[in-house]
Structures are given as C-alpha cells and as structure tokens.
Amino acid sequence: MTALRQLASPTGLRHGDHVFWTFDDASDFSAAVLPYLDEGRWLGEQLLLTGTSRAALLDGLAGLPERDQMLASGQLEVRLMTDIVDPARGLVPVEQMESYRSEVAAALGRGRTGLRVAADVTTLAQRGSVDRRQLHVYERLADRMAASAALTALCLYDSSLDDDVLRPLAVLHPDQHHGERETLGCLCERGPWLSLRGEVDLSLADAVLRALVDVTRDAPGEVVLDLADLEFLDVAGARMLATAVRLLGEVGVHLRMVRAQRPVGRCLELFDLADGQAICT
C-alpha cells in the first residue's frame, strides 16, 4: 500500500508511485524532470517524457546525463501530447491506459526494468469541464495501473492553472507536490476498492467531491469507498460525502462507505450515512 506523501523532491520513486507535481516555469519543470528521469536511468528503466513542444522538452533535458545516447538507443523518448491524444477526440482514458500497458510490456521485453513516464498534462487540464472529467477518470485509471504494473508516473501541471482545476487533480495522486500547499488527502485505488486517505476537511472537501463524482459516475451500480485509511474527517467533509451520495444516486451509482474509523463515523452519522450506507469497522 502506498501511503499519502507530500514530496519535496521527485526522487526515491519506484514502480507504483504516481505523483502530482506543479511547476512554475521552464526551469522549475526541468528541475523536477531531470532528477526524476536520471533516477530512472540508474534503475535501467524505459524513459518517456511528454509535453507540448519537442524543442522545449529537449531543452529541458539538456542537463540529463547521457541524454543523446539514450535518445539514440531508444531508452529515452520524447513525445508530443498531440501525438498521444487526438485533439479532435480528446482524451480516451481506457485507450490511453491500454497503450501504456503495452508500452510497459514492450519495455520489459527489451530488458528494461520498467517504464518511467513524466507527462506535462497541462494542455489537457486547460480544456473544458467535460475533458477535465475525462482527465480525472484517466488519473484514476493511471493510479490503478501503477499499482499493478512496472510503471512510475510523474504528472506535471503548470502551477498557473486555477486552483479549482489543480486541486481535484492533486487529490487523485497519492504523492503530491503542490507548491507550498500541505498535502492532506487523496483518493486512490491500491486495493480492491477506491479509497479515501489522509485528512479530508473543509479545505479539501470541494476538490474531493469533484474528483470522487467524476471518477465514479459513469458506471451505474455499487461503488465501495474504503475509509480505513481516512485519519480525519470533519463535518464539512461528511457533508461533502452526503452530497456525493446524492449526486451519484441521481445517476444510478450507489456509493457505499466501509471501514470508517470511529471519529470519522461520528461525522457520517450526522448525515445519517452510517446506517443506510452500511458502515462496518
């Protein structure tokens, strides 16, 4: 199980790690990507960097040891977001995941130890709310895949994006670096169930609501939300979960919360979530 972490440096990462990282400018971007990819080089991983401009990406990699050799040998690849996501169709999360899955297999087949991706996803986050929903679904699937494949992922976002856009995205990553902002909680999928972890209070409730509803609303039926690793929930957080239950109920999704710790259960009871939603401990 990956614990929620606030990362100061994009290193010390291994398969299964799925990181949210904001950068301020090109040099900040470079400062994150270089040590991250260099670590992958040491580990013998296949390296993939994606973004919007090939020239800018290569510039950003100028300080990476053995950059040119790795580009020549194919260990390092630089790809444009427009090559990956057809701007007309937008992001199709399931297809994208399948393509990553085969790339992981291909990397292992070539004798690499795994696939390490650094992706500047800013342009996808800049599109409208429908695309952002797809991006949330994509991040959930990426998290699920990282748990089971030889994949390490660094998702980079320009820090000038609106907080309303960035915060639900941050919530979908167990490892976070969001400027000076303290990492409180995340929504991830490392076991049989979707799991809400860390601390969810007034300051995080809106972001979790957005992320939770977006990633679960497309599949009618029951969704189990594991609260075993939720260390703190306040009344505002519980109100948010009650809202999520209602919104999802309207589209045929039954959100069932399980394994709440006692103080968390106290807050849920205030919204009559404990009884009807089958909280067990």
Partner: peptide
C-alpha cells in the same frame, strides 16, 4: 479533543 476543537475553529 481534536475533532471538537476543529469544528469550533471552522
């Protein structure tokens, strides 16, 4: 103590 105080602070 932590939860009760948090709610008063909120």
């Amino acid at each position: 103590v932590v939860l009760a105080t948090h709610e008063l602070l909120t």
